[in-house]
Simulated scan of single mutants.
Amino acid sequence: MTVIVRDFRPADAEGFARIRQLALPFMLCTAESFAYDVAHAHPDAHFRPLVAEEDGELIGTAQVGIAYDSPQPGQGYLNVYVHPERERRGAGSLLVRTAEEYLAAVGATKLFAFVTDTPANRAFAEKHGYRASRSAQFLRLDLAHATLPPRRPLPKDVELRTGADFADDPRPLFALDAETLADEPSDIAHEFTDYEAWLRETWHHPLLSHELTSVVVADGRPAAFSAARTDGGTRYGTVMTGTARAHRGRGLAKLAKNDSLHRARAAGYTEAFTGNDAGNGPMLAINKWFGYEICATEVHHVRELG
């Protein structure tokens, strides 16, 4: 039996998504959403998905590219996942080697990889020259049975809207998303400066639910929001919850997220997922308040290219 690594093909979308779901069940991924990611990747991202194949069967995947929206040049990433029942066949190492050679060729000087926090996975990363850095937590809420905080009367100066209310002009949400992203703790700094890229990669993404995304508006402008994604089944996730700097400390992020959670449950979603950098104390406290429980941890690993 021989393992080979090759470029992703459109026909691989189902298998690619399935491996991601098995290896990382806490993040929403569908064949449609991944095919969309590939088709709409920014050219400066040099995005190159790879698959490992054994006797015609997909057994591993890698998402490889450059963080083009970072002010720091040369920040590359490779996130490798192998089918849990097809490990120790050399697929992971071959994917890593192929990804590293490609990233070096397109100008990467530092490589980042998320690694699920298990002894075997961390040992694999260290064996390939990666050192542990920041950690992040995946959290789950049993939305079907959770006791959500009750809805409370809104402060006089704010109103609740949905993402769908901004369908004609989402630029105010772009500005809010950019401001909150800039303050997210991370090994790689990101800046949203390209509105058209944000429209393609975020606003029009097939998993994003405009209807379940909640927006708190104050003084006529979006002040806080909770962006929601769904998998088209029973799983719902919040991918960004944040507040404009001028409005922090008022509980508006809680207000937005609570509204989204209530409406997601009413729409029939039974599981809620989210993720937080381990250093993001305020957001971790909010999620604990809602009843989310940690279900897994990922550790960001980094390797400098000589």
Rank of each mutant, 00 (worst) to 15 (best):
T147D: 14
G268W: 09
R171H: 14
D165L: 14
T270W: 03
G232Y: 05
Y102W: 13
T147R: 15
I286F: 07
D37H: 10
L255F: 06
R161V: 03
K156S: 12
V82F: 04
P222E: 11
H300W: 10
V80D: 06
E85H: 09
L58G: 01
M283W: 06
Y195W: 07
A125F: 01
L58E: 03
L103N: 03
N79V: 14
V5T: 14
F138P: 01
H190N: 07
E271W: 12
T147V: 09
P49N: 13
C29I: 12
L176H: 03
F16C: 03
W203E: 00
R86M: 08
T2F: 11
A41H: 04
E271D: 13
R171E: 15
S135T: 15
V106R: 04
A123W: 07
L199G: 02
H247C: 13
D157H: 15
P119S: 15
Y77P: 01
D168V: 07
L28R: 00
R88D: 08
I66L: 15
S260H: 04
T202D: 08
T118K: 09
A120S: 11
T116L: 09
L148H: 08
A164E: 13
A108S: 13
T274W: 04
Y36I: 07
G237M: 10
T241W: 00
D142E: 11
E87D: 05
P25H: 01
D7W: 07
E101S: 15
M27R: 08
D259Q: 13
Q21P: 01
A272H: 05
R86F: 05
I286A: 04
E298G: 11
S33I: 05
D165C: 06
A256S: 12
D194V: 06
A167P: 02
Y36F: 11
E179D: 14
G233K: 10
D231A: 10
L154Y: 11
V158L: 07
A182G: 15
A218N: 06
Y68A: 11
E196G: 08
A218F: 04
G15T: 00
E179L: 12
R151H: 12
G74W: 06
G76C: 12
P25T: 03
E126F: 07
R9L: 15
F174G: 00
A52N: 04
H190D: 09
K156R: 12
R152G: 06
T2W: 04
T116N: 08
H301G: 04
S209E: 07
P153T: 07
V96K: 00
L141T: 02
A45Y: 01
A13Y: 02
R221L: 08
I59R: 03
A45E: 15
L139A: 10
A105Q: 12
Y269F: 15
L255M: 15
G306V: 07
R171F: 13
P43I: 07
V215Y: 00
L95I: 11
L160Y: 13
A256Q: 02
R248D: 04
F166G: 00
D55H: 15
A11G: 10
R18D: 09
Y292E: 03
K110Q: 14
W198E: 01
E211W: 06
A136P: 09
A178W: 05
G237K: 01
